[in-house]
Amino acid sequence: MTRLTHLAVLTAASLLSAAPALGQETALNVAVALPGHDLTPWGMFMAADGVVKTVILGLALASVATWTVLVAKSLELKNRTHAQRAAFEAVDAARTLNEAAADERAARSPLMQAALAELALSSNALNDGEGLKERVASRFNRIEAALGRRMVRGTGALATIGATAPFVGLFGTVWGIMNSFIGIAASQTTNLAVVAPGIAEALLATAIGLVAAIPAVVIYNHFARQTAVYRALVGDTSAAILRLISRDLSRGVRG
């Protein structure tokens, strides 16, 4: 009995002495297993599921579209706002409609062209000043609406991207995590070194979704403010032209 007890004590001591070595070996195996997974964004994308890859590619294309709209729309808004401001300054400084029309900055404005066209069509009805101003104002309303629609063209895509990109990225994340849990069930292991790469690949979709959505929302709000400034300039120009027409009609009545 004493011999058996002594043998048991020796066996337990040998196991206890071997435990740190086993722990070191397990840690070494984990450390060796981790470099097998490329945890850079490109490496996670290449190792991702087909559905997750499709989601990430779609979000990347949406991000490219956002920055393309930013560049193209910024140039368009800058040029049109500059031209509209120059037209307003020319019209506001003129004393008569003919003087304003002689200025090249105002002559290029569709508002001035519409006013001159209506005056030509109403040449035999200039005595009805209120009717003339009403017809010119009607033309201006339609032109202002058309110019406003032209300025917001393309920005609707930014609103769509900003509203849907996070949810599209979340779909890719849910799909990837679902596949990771299926892999856990199949391998019958909960070792973090085994399941972490799949979860990281899934979370990459959400990150790309936020990268696509946040700039789209910021840029859309920026364009909304700039478009409001442009519309205000168009409204100021149309009001200035109507004032010139009213002055000319009053001078005609007095003459």
Score class of each variant (00 low, 15 high):
Met1Gly: 12
Arg149Gln: 14
Pro197Ser: 00
Leu57Asn: 08
Ser122Tyr: 13
Leu170Trp: 00
Gly176Phe: 11
Pro166Ile: 03
Gly183Arg: 11
Met151Leu: 04
Ser122Gly: 13
Phe223Leu: 08
Asn221Trp: 10
Lys78Glu: 10
Ser63Ala: 04
Thr66Ser: 14
Leu59Ala: 09
Gln24Pro: 05
Thr160Gly: 15
Tyr230Ala: 05
Leu242His: 13
Thr5Ala: 14
Glu144Ala: 15
Met1Phe: 10
Pro166Met: 05
Asn127Val: 11
Ala239Cys: 05
Met112Ile: 01
Val211Asp: 00
Leu111His: 05
Ala86Trp: 02
Leu147Val: 04
Ile161Pro: 05
Ala8Ile: 09
Ala72Arg: 09
Gly58Cys: 13
Val168Ala: 00
Ala165Glu: 05
Arg95Thr: 03
Met112Lys: 10
Asp49Ile: 05
Ala185Tyr: 04
Pro215Lys: 04
Ala101Asp: 08
Ala60Thr: 06
Ala202Pro: 11
Asn79Lys: 01
Arg139Phe: 01
Pro41Ile: 02
Pro20His: 04
Glu118Ala: 11
Phe181Tyr: 15
Ile208His: 08
Val218Gln: 01
Pro110Ala: 00
Ala200Trp: 03
Gly131Glu: 00
Asp49Thr: 05
Gly148Arg: 14
Ser109His: 00
Pro110Val: 00
Thr237Leu: 09
Gly36Ile: 00
Ile245Lys: 10
Asn221Arg: 07
Glu99Ser: 02
Pro20Tyr: 07
Asp38Leu: 06
Leu10His: 09
Ala232Cys: 12
Pro197Cys: 01
Leu97Arg: 01
Val51Lys: 07
Leu132Ala: 08
Ala12Trp: 04
Leu39Ile: 01
Gly252Ala: 12
Val253His: 10
Ser180Met: 15
Thr173Pro: 01
Gly183Ile: 15
Ala83Ile: 05
Leu170Val: 00
Ile143Leu: 15
Gly154Trp: 04
Arg247Cys: 07
Met44Asp: 02
Ala228Lys: 04
Ala125Tyr: 08
Leu39Phe: 00
Arg231Glu: 08
Leu158Asn: 02
Arg139Ser: 06
Thr164Leu: 14
Thr227Asn: 14
Leu244Thr: 00
Gly50Leu: 11
Gln226Asn: 11
Met44Ser: 07
Glu130Ile: 15
Ala13Phe: 13
Ala33Trp: 02
Arg153Asp: 12
Val217Ala: 06
Ala115Asp: 02
Thr68His: 11
Leu132Arg: 13
Ala115Asn: 00
Leu203Asp: 07
Ile161Gln: 06
Asn29Pro: 01
Gly172Glu: 07
Ala125Asn: 11
Arg139Val: 03
Thr81Glu: 02
Ala240Leu: 04
Ala93Lys: 13
Asn221Tyr: 11
Arg80His: 09
Val52Leu: 08
Gly23Cys: 12
Glu104Phe: 02
Ala157Met: 14
Phe167Gly: 00
Leu97Asn: 05
Val64Phe: 06
Ala120Lys: 10
Gly129Ser: 14
Ala8Val: 12
Lys133Thr: 14
Leu203Cys: 09
Ala146Met: 06
Thr2Ala: 15
Gly129Arg: 15
Gly172Asp: 06
